[in-house]
Design a protein around this nucleic acid. Sequence first.
DNA 1: TGAATATATAAGCAAATCGTAATATACTTA
DNA 2: TAAGTATATTACGATTTGCTTATATATTCA
Lengths: 112, 112
Amino acid sequence: MENLDINKAAPLLKLLGDKTRLTMVKILDNHDCCVCEFVEIFKTSQSSVSQHLRKLRDLGLVQEERRGQWIFYSLQKESEYYSFIQQILNQLPSQDGKLKELEEQGLRITCC
Amino acid sequence: MENLDINKAAPLLKLLGDKTRLTMVKILDNHDCCVCEFVEIFKTSQSSVSQHLRKLRDLGLVQEERRGQWIFYSLQKESEYYSFIQQILNQLPSQDGKLKELEEQGLRITCC
DNA sequence: TGAATATATAAGCAAATCGTAATATACTTA
DNA sequence: TAAGTATATTACGATTTGCTTATATATTCA
C-alpha cells in the first residue's frame, strides 16, 4: 500500500469533504460526465458546478476533454492521489442511479 | 466492505481534511494521548488542541477518559466511521516519530 | 485549604468557502 | 454570420473555520 504524506492527504480530504464534489468523483469513477449533466444531477447552477470541477482539476484529480460542444470530465488515473481515492470511493454506495435518472429523462449526453 | 452514505462520508472527510486533526487521528490509531501531549506535538495552544478534539468527539470519532490529572483520548472503535477511517489511515505514513520525540524530551505522559 | 496543573468553553477576528449573478469565451448550427 | 448552447471566470455576500485571548472548571499536591 502506497503512502501519501499527511501534508498532501489533508488538503485532498478537505477537497473531498464536500457532498457535491465527493459525489462527482464517485460518479466519475465509473463514467465520464460533462458539466451540464452535473448541473442536472445536482440541481444547481452551472457556475457552481464549474467551480467545483475547477477545484478538482486544480489538484489534478480530474481532467477535461472537449467533445464537440461539450467538455467531458474524467478521473485522472495517473494522479498521485488516484489509489488513495479509490480506497475511499470503494466504501461509498454507487451513485449510478443519478445517471440513470438522467437517461430516463433523455438528458444524458452521449455525443461523439 | 461496508458502505457509508455520502451524506455521512462528506462531513467526515471534511473533518479529517485538516492537517492537525488528521495527524491526531493517525496517532490515536496506535496510542492513546492526552491533550498536553498534543499541545507539545503540534506546538500550538491548548485551546486550539481542545477545540480540534471536540470536533472529533462531536462526530464520535474519539472518546475521552480521565486518568488522574489528565484526560486521555482514544479512537472510538465502535464508531460507525471506524472501518471507513481505517482505510484512510492505512495509507498514511506512521506519525510515531512525533511521540518518540516527546519521550526523548521526557514529555510523554505515562500515568496510571 | 491554597497554589499549580490540565482541560474546556466562550468571544472575537481574519481567512477560507460556497453559492449567486453577471459577463466572457468557445463551439454548433441554421 | 448570427443566434443558441456549453462552459469558465469574476465579483460579491453570507457562512464557516481555525486561531488567539480570556475565563471557568476540575484535579493534584504541598
